[in-house]
Each structure stands twice: as C-alpha cells, then as structure tokens.
Design a protein around this nucleic acid. Structure first.
Lengths: 140, 140
DNA sequence: CAAAATTAGTTGACTTGGAAAGGATTTTCA
DNA sequence: TGAAAATCCTTTCCAAGTCAACTAATTTTG
C-alpha cells in the first residue's frame, strides 16, 4: 500500500501532502456552494471589516495580484462583492461585500470550521495547537 | 504591517501559508534548471528504482492523473524520461529515467536539500522533526 | 467463452494561473 | 513645479490544471 519513497523525507513534501489533503477536502466542501477556497478567504477578510487594497488582500488570501483580479471579476459577476475606488488614492481598489456575500459567508464558514474540526479530532487539540504554532513560526 | 485576520485562526490557512512559502521558494530554486517541483519529485521516485504505474506515481507526486500525463509529455520531450508499456498489463505505463534525467536529479536534489535545510535552520531540528511527525500523522 | 463491467491512461474542451507589459495615478526630487 | 520614477491594479498572452469523455486492455460473470 504505502511505498517508501525518498521524497517523503523532505519537509517540503510533507507540507505539500498535508496541504493537498486539507485543501482538497475543504475545496470539495465549498464546491457545494460554488465557491472557491480563496473566494471564501476574501469574504472572511471583508466581513471582518478589514478594508484592504487589492495588493494587501492578495497577500492575505495567498494569491498573486493578477489571479486575485480575475477571482474578483467572477465574484462581482456572481453578486458576492463589488469594487470601489479608494478615495485616498485613486489607483487603489477596495471591495465591498454585498448582502448576498454576507449571507454566503455565514454558511460557508460552517463548512470551513468542520474541516478544521476534522484536523483537530485527528491530531488532538494539543498537537493541533503545536502544529499551528510551528507553522506560524515557519512563515515569519 | 501584519493585520489580524480571521482566516489566520484556521489550520487550513496556516498550512496553505507555509506550503505557499516553501513551495514558492523551492520552485524558484528549481526554475534555474527549468524544472518544476513536481517534475523533480517524479525524478526522485524513478531514481530510487520504484517502478510505479502512472496512477500510483500520480498519487506519490501529489498530482491528478491527467496533469501527470501532461507533465510526463513535457519531460519526454525534454529527454528526461521515456515511457514503456508494462509487460504484466498492457494498459499500464512505466517511466524510465534517461541518463540526462539521472544527471539532472543529482544537481536538483542539492537545491531541494538547501530548501529543507533553510526550514531546519529556522525551526531547529527538534521542532522541524516534530512538524514532520505531526504532518505525517495528519495525512494518514 | 463471450458480453458486460471495470480499470489504466490519455485526450479534448474549458477554466484557472502566472509572468511580463500596460495604463493610470501618485510621489519624488532637481 | 514638472519631468522622472514609483506604485497600484489590470490586461494580455501563454502555460498548466481540471472535469468528463474516450480508447484500449483486462477482469468479471452469466
């Protein structure tokens, strides 16, 4: 069943494996709502009231700016968000979550939470916490 | 500088962040050799002598089968591998690493090792080891 | 044994992602 | 102040990924 592969010894591989599993599972959950994982993250950031520029938002949701632009295009045409030019700097763009978007994010958050709970159940809260902390340290 | 974002509390987000950072950095290193991270993994698996089917290989290198097929097409045209029909089952395909491929994987492995070493230096061997173990448990 | 079902891999149509260039605005500085 | 440089986001063009359908080979089963 499980082979012994040389790549398995790499931390980069372990990370990729774990990420793929979790992301895939979360992605499947959100597909029921026709929502991409990254779109959910955008909604969460907006719903929390963070008024970010596209650039900062891209960083926050782990995307490259051109990719975010295209995702936002889709979200606009789906009626989830709309764009507004920032008054302080007309090059900047801010996003506003629509009422539909606000409704959606509530439902979707449940699914995302379930996904995280699954990890918590698998590892136990202590190891899950430790994982969270070590990953945080890694990305600093 | 660093905002407090609601998504940050999700383990799925921490994993995505860490993976993005490490994968991006590794990808940049391998770009010097015109090699994709996944292509390197394919080479490692082959070089270790594992004679897998395309399906099993896809799983091992964390790709979907159609994506692997296309990657292998490129690797074939780059002279890194070639395909061979399996004798036991003519539907199956095995890959053979060419001499060029064998040469390449040696050089590339150094870079990949450097990337892992960077993580090790950042976390210390104890935490790095712990991370490896927890991730392993998560994907079981 | 032969038809039906399953399995392995690929192909094709479509969507998404990425690097580099482009237009618009703002900032810098001589 | 105004020309040059920098910044922000988007666009464009091309590469890579995904889903579903397809071909070929093998296995199952009536």
């Amino acid at each position: 069943m499980s082979h012994s592969l040389p790549v398995q010894s790499y931390l980069s591989y372990s990370l990729a494996t774990a990420h793929r599993k979790v992301h895939g599972s979360l992605s499947k959950r959100l597909k029921e709502f026709n929502v991409q994982v990254e779109a959910w993250r955008v909604m969460e950031v907006l719903e929390a009231g963070n008024n970010l520029t596209m650039g900062d938002l891209a960083e926050a949701v782990l995307m490259n700016p051109p990719t975010l632009t295209k995702l936002v295009d889709r979200m606009v045409s789906d009626g989830i968000v709309h764009r507004r030019m920032a008054s302080i700097d007309q090059r900047q763009v801010n996003l506003i979550l629509t009422e539909l978007g606000k409704k959606r994010v509530q439902q979707i958050r449940e699914q995302a939470q379930l996904e995280d709970d699954a990890i918590l159940n698998k590892l136990g809260s202590e190891k899950a916490d430790l994982l969270h902390r070590i990953l945080g340290e890694l990305v600093q």
